[in-house]
Structure formats: structure tokens, C-alpha cells
């Protein structure tokens, strides 16, 4: 379904998300993590409007099957991830497997540095990004909210940069909005808020901070009603994007009357 942000010419989506030359209709990316029932996933996918859905690769005995087909039935594309990789070497190997399995060069690159927080390992991440870009992958790295690292990843040739709002699955929202705003200033490639979204207002904030898109998995899959939360996040992303383009008013210390004083009705003294 097309959106109608800003000015548009007939028959044209005026504000598409473009990653590596590909036009995406939705600025909400769906992570399939946390879904245990295909029918619930499919309902959430439809409600989210997402064009891109992340998946992981696991041994077939641990992967029930049907997810890849469900994503294609839903009209979306698969964005394989390297979840569970702790070194550049593991991530590159997983990327090769993902390319063979899904016939796509697109990759959500994750190189984790710590099991408790699941925070990215900046050194290994940058190393893997450089290697995979050189091999022709379209690399979307999951990273910290560090503007310097974001710039390094863009310089390495990444197609987008995906800073976290807070730790994966935590639902803590965007703990450092200033860091996300600085990441926005640091790169020209699409900036996608990844990890930490808890509810709709978090997604709207991400867009208001200048992110080009939001990726949500747990916020949807573990909500009491995943389909409704998918719809809410889609609406929040659209609202946040529109607000970002509309330009918010400056924050003031004191009140500024929105009603003119001039012409107030006269009344006899106290």
C-alpha cells in the first residue's frame, strides 16, 4: 500500500525508503524473532505492512520450517541476520550460508560482544562489514548508538546503519535520544532504529529523531496482541515520519500565548 507523505505526483510514492537503490514501501521493518506460531506471524506481517522481514538460520531440527514461504506469501523480502555470531569469522560464514539459502545479498549484520547485554562488538562488526561489503553484500549492521562508529560503518560501504535504542528484547525504548540524533547527523545512508522498541511511542520518537525506518521484533511478537501492535507500530512510524518532515516547534522555557491579547473584551475594574 502506498503512503502519502508530503507532496506527491500522480502514481508516485513521494517518500519511499530507498536502501541500496531498492525502493521500500514501508518504513517499518519486521523482525520475526519471538514468533512461535506461523499464523500469528502472518497476521502481524500483514498488519505491519513491512517489505523486509529478518530471519535467522539454524539447523533444520531447530527450525520448524514454513517461515520463508510465509514471508514470501506475505509479499515481503527476507533479510537474513547473523544473530548468535560473536566473531567476524562466524558472521561472514553465516552470511555465505544465508546467501546460498535465500538467494539474496542483503544481510542484517550482527556481531555480538556480550551474552548478557547482547551489545554489538564494534571491532568485530567493522571487520565483518568491510569483508562482506568487499564480497558484494548489501550490509545493514546492527550497531551501538555511537555516531563515530556509525560513520565508520558508512565509510566501510554499509547500505544503512542500524543503531540500537536499548538492548535487544528489553523494550526499554530509546535510552539515549541524543545519541540517535547524533548518528542521524553522522551518516547519509538510511538510519534504522533497531532493538529496544517497546511500544508505539518509541517508534514515533525514533522517526522524530530523524531515523529513516524502525525495525521491531519482540515489541510485536511478545505483545498480548501482536497483530494490533504491528498495526500500532506502523501507524507510529508513519506519524513520526510525517512529524519529522513537518518540523516540530522549538522548545521554550516559558509559555508563548497562542491566542492574541489584542481585542479582549472590556470589563469594569476589580
Amino acid at each position: 500500500m502506498s503512503k502519502s507523505y508530503g507532496r506527491r505526483r500522480a502514481g508516485e510514492v513521494s517518500d519511499p525508503l530507498i536502501i541500496a537503490g531498492s525502493v521500500l514501501r514501508s518504513r517499518l521493518l519486521l523482525g520475526s524473532g519471538g514468533f512461535h506460531h506461523l499464523d500469528r506471524f502472518e497476521a502481524a506481517l500483514a498488519a505491519s505492512g513491512a517489505d523486509l522481514v529478518t530471519v535467522a538460520l539454524r539447523r533444520v531440527e531447530h527450525a520448524p520450517g514454513g517461515l520463508y514461504e510465509a514471508i514470501q506469501r506475505g509479499g515481503a523480502r527476507v533479510l537474513p541476520n547473523t544473530a548468535g555470531c560473536y566473531t567476524a569469522r562466524e558472521a561472514v560464514h553465516t552470511a555465505h550460508l544465508a546467501r546460498a539459502a535465500f538467494e539474496t545479498d542483503w544481510l542484517k549484520l550482527e556481531v555480538i560482544g556480550d551474552r548478557r547485554t547482547l551489545l554489538p562488538d564494534a571491532v568485530e562488526l567493522l571487520r565483518a562489514a568491510r569483508e562482506l561489503v568487499a564480497e558484494g553484500f548489501v550490509v545493514l549492521p546492527y550497531t551501538t548508538d555511537d555516531p563515530v562508529l556509525a560513520r565508520r560503518l558508512e565509510e566501510a560501504g554499509c547500505a544503512a546503519v542500524m543503531p540500537l535504542g536499548s538492548p535487544i528484547g528489553s523494550g526499554l525504548g530509546i535510552r539515549n535520544p541524543h545519541g540517535i540524533a547524533l548518528c542521524r547527523e553522522a551518516v547519509t545512508v538510511p538510519l534504522i532504529l533497531d532493538a529496544g522498541i517497546g511500544t508505539a511511542s518509541d517508534a514515533a520518537l525514533a522517526m522524530e529523531l530523524g531515523c529513516d525506518a524502525v525495525l521491531a521484533a519482540t515489541a510485536i511478537s511478545r505483545a498480548r496482541d501482536p497483530e494490533a501492535m504491528a498495526r500500532a507500530l506502523r501507524q507510529a512510524v508513519e506519524a513520526g515520519r510525517t512529524a519529522s518532515l513537518a518540523g516540530r516547534i522549538p522548545r521554550l522555557h516559558h509559555a508563548q500565548a497562542s491566542t492574541a491579547d489584542a481585542g479582549l473584551a472590556g470589563i469594569a475594574g476589580p
Partner: peptide, 10 residues
């Protein structure tokens, strides 16, 4: 031999 397929993730 490793045989892998898509599973929920990310």
C-alpha cells in the same frame, strides 16, 4: 555437514 533453514530471529 550442516543443514540449515530459516527460523524466527532478529
Amino acid at each position: 555437514v550442516e543443514v540449515l533453514r530459516a527460523t524466527a530471529g532478529g
